[in-house]
Structures are given as structure tokens and as C-alpha cells.
Computed example of a mutant assay.
Amino acid sequence: MEPAKQKSRTGLILLVFAGLILVAAVSWAAFRGADSEKNTASPAASPLPGQPANLATIEERTRAEPGNPDAWLALGQAQFDAGRFAEAARAYERGTAFAGGRADIWSALGEARVMASADSPMPAAALADFRKAAAIDPKDPRARYFLAVARDLAGDHRGAIGDWFALLQDTPPGAPWEQDLRRTIEQVGKINTIEVAERLAAVKQPAPHPLVPGGSTATAPIPGPNAEQMRTAAALPPHEQDAMVQNMVAGLEAKLQANPGNVDGWIMLMRSRMTLGESARASAALKAAVAANPGDTARLRAEAAALGVR
């Protein structure tokens, strides 16, 4: 794996792990006061949440939960990482049958079709998938990226670069696709003699919102697992890392449903969703957080704005 991609995966694992620790800390602190001798271990020392799943395990999940779009999404991701693009496309297509209103599955399907194509850099079916994703969520980063690719292939190089810059301006620093996006802008600019270096240096990505008092959970440095846990995570194959992250995010969401009063936890969930490129699900998390914590609406919306959540 390229060092930049490994770094972005590691950062994502750190981010979601931090969210789980943050949510778990509330209940852990309550028990610590009652029995300090039995609760001396920090939650940060616990094993990584979410057991890494191999491809066979993920396939078994789709058989056990054939109507669960997340199961098909996980299978598609695993097959995609294994280079089985046509199979990934079939898995994503099954997912759209159960969650046709989710932009992330449509854009993933389009990407798999692009990679599976032997004769076209942008198959018509893939372009249709990206357009569906963008119609559902105009901020879906994968759809925006590939729609700009289609524009570049059609000969509108400046228009494509403009679209990629707009995506970069909405991209949280450290998002998994950030470095690839920057390289794409540089390469297309170089090939077509379009100056982009100054614009890349000047681009402004999402920053802390001025309404957030006393620092921002949305932009704060990320705590995380210890070195041994991170070595374990980094040693996993890419598809198992992806499955682990998905399990961790699902675990974080489940904990918040059980403890909806944890405002910082909701912010970390939004941050995780945006880092994964799931802007619609980040917006859903914001709505759930506001509904559960109406007294913290101003802070939640300010932190969401810092993340680019609408």
C-alpha cells in the first residue's frame, strides 16, 4: 500500500477509535467513582472495538442478513480491495435494491463499474450511478470526483479541475481521498498546461467554526489506541481494515443510541462519517443529536459547520 494511503487509513482508525473511547468514558467514569479498586484500567487500554472480518465472514453476513445494505456495502468494499471489481459491483448493486436512497452505495457501485470495465474509462452505467448518487446527496465526494473525471474525459479539463477544487474546499483535512485528489489536480493540470500550484497552495479547507467556545471536538487532535493496537490494525489487509472501521463506526452509533446525551460522541460520529465520505449519514447524525440534545443545538450546529455537515 502507498504510504499516503496507509497514513490516511491509520488516521481514520484513530478517529473512530477516539470516538468510541469518548462515548465509553461517560459510563466508565460513573462506575470508577463507585468502585475505584475494580475500575483502574483506562478504556483506552481495551482491545480495538470490532473484530476484523475476512472475506468469508463478510460473505456469511450477507447470507445471514440479505436485506441489510451495510452487509452488501462491506462485501463490496472487501471484494473491491481484493481487486474483484465485477463481484464488488454485483454486491453494491444488491445493496442498492435495499437502500436505493443512499448516495454512498450508488457512488461505490459506479466506482466498481469503472474499475471492472475493460473497454471504457467511464461506462455509461457507472456515469448513471454517479449521477444518481449526486442527485441524492450533492456533497457525496466520490460522485463529485468521478463526475469531474467524466467532464475531463469529455475534454473540459478546466471545468473538471474547477470541480475538483470545489471538492477539495469541502474536504476535511486528512480525509482518505485528500492526497489522491490533490495529485489528480496536479497531474491533469500538468498534462493540459493548466497552472494549479498557486491555487492548491491557497485552497481553504474546512476550519474550526468561530462559534465553538473553548475548543472544538470537530477539529481537536485525535487521541487513540496505543502503539501495539495500532501495529495490529496496520498489519491487517486493506479490506479487513475497512471492515474494522465500519464495525467501529457502527459500534459508535449504537453506543450513542443507548446514550444519546453524549454531545461529544455525536460530534465524533459526524466527524467519522465525513471522513468516510458519508455526508448524508453525517447529516442524519446531526439531526439525531439535536433531537436528543435540544439545549446543545447551537454547539452541535457550529461543530457540524466546522466539519462541512449540513
Score class of each variant (00 low, 15 high):
A133Q: 01
T57N: 09
R32K: 15
L147W: 01
A207P: 01
G214C: 10
E65K: 15
W164I: 04
S279V: 00
I222G: 00
L181E: 13
A150Y: 03
G11K: 14
P225Y: 06
A202C: 05
M274L: 06
A29S: 15
R32H: 11
L109W: 00
T193Q: 11
A243Y: 11
G251D: 07
A201V: 08
P223E: 11
R90E: 11
R273I: 07
L48M: 00
L269T: 05
P47N: 12
L236T: 06
I161E: 00
R9E: 07
P238N: 10
H239I: 01
I191A: 09
P176Q: 12
A304K: 05
L147Y: 01
N192V: 04
E228H: 01
G295S: 13
G67N: 09
E253K: 15
G224Y: 11
A126M: 06
P237D: 10
I58L: 14
A24V: 02
W266M: 05
K204R: 11
Q241V: 06
T184F: 06
W266K: 04
E65G: 09
G110F: 10
L252P: 03
N39P: 00
G155T: 11
L200D: 01
G214L: 12
L211Q: 13
E253F: 05
Q169L: 09
E253N: 13
D140W: 00
A197E: 06
A25C: 09
K255G: 14
V188D: 04
T62Q: 05
A289K: 02
A202Q: 12
Y92N: 13
P47V: 13
A82E: 14
V149C: 11
T193V: 12
M268G: 09
P260A: 12
W164T: 02
E37N: 07
G174D: 08
P49K: 14
A41L: 14
N68C: 10
I105M: 01
G100L: 05
A304G: 05
A150C: 07
S272D: 05
G95N: 03
A305K: 06
K139W: 03
V26P: 03
P173G: 12
E278R: 01
A133S: 14
G19D: 03
R158G: 14
W28N: 11
A218I: 06
S8G: 10
L168T: 11
A284S: 15
V263L: 04
A134K: 05
